[in-house]
Nucleic acid binder design. Sequence first.
DNA 1: AACCTTCGCAACCGCAAGGAT
DNA 2: CATCCTTGCGGTTGCGAAGGT
Length: 236
Amino acid sequence: MGRTTWFDVDGIKRGEWTEEEDRMLVAYINKYGVRDWGALPKRAGLRRCGKSCRLRWLNYLKPGIKKGKFTPQEEEDIIKFHSLLGNRWAAIAKQMPNRTDNDIKNHWNSCLKKRLRRSGIDPMTHEPIKATSSSATSSPTLRHSSSTGSVRLLNKLASGISSRKLGLDRIKTVMISLEPSQAVEEEKMMRSSKEEMIGCFMEIDGNLIRTTSFRELATTATKSYYCYDDWLRGCV
DNA sequence: AACCTTCGCAACCGCAAGGAT
DNA sequence: CATCCTTGCGGTTGCGAAGGT
């Protein structure tokens, strides 16, 4: 199974990898490591582009990668992490040792998403699908003109992350710190104003986790709540 | 048996971020 | 500071296998 083999205009091979190519790539990486993907194919004697070699290594050849069927526990984990992190497959893969982001993404798109829909759950929001609702859209939009500052900040952060405008590693500055009681008030105000709840974020053990309520954020998080600096200045 | 549809998964593509120069 | 290059990520595609009609 695989894609047809073909060569591009530069003579670079595309499509399915052969066992021989796999052996050459593994032998090279075992000897020299994985520096400089751009130069690796030539050095390893492969007629492939660096990107293709990187993908083949990370998704298939790298030691410790678990292939095959996902266990029910793993599927449960994927759904749980997706509800927290959205389509951030690399972040989800970090929570699941030995599974690649590509594998998780494939399983989600080909299986879990449909399964959730069949059981009446919107796979994007992880909320029950409302028959009359026309607002079950995939990407959250911002409608927060009447929100308080903290709500607005958190939701802009959520939106920025989910739209990939902002990489997590660019989140540098602690700007928001809610007391539990304050969080409850924030949430009440937001719900009463019928604003769309996009999500809040908290940091646990170095990972930024999406939560469903300000209350949860304020009572569960072990550290302060992170916001952003340069991106924020341009948006608020 | 033949055809069609769905599934599973490897691989490609385009884009963004960040480092090097 | 600007530009180029490399790396990493998420969306999408292509194709054989499996299942259904």
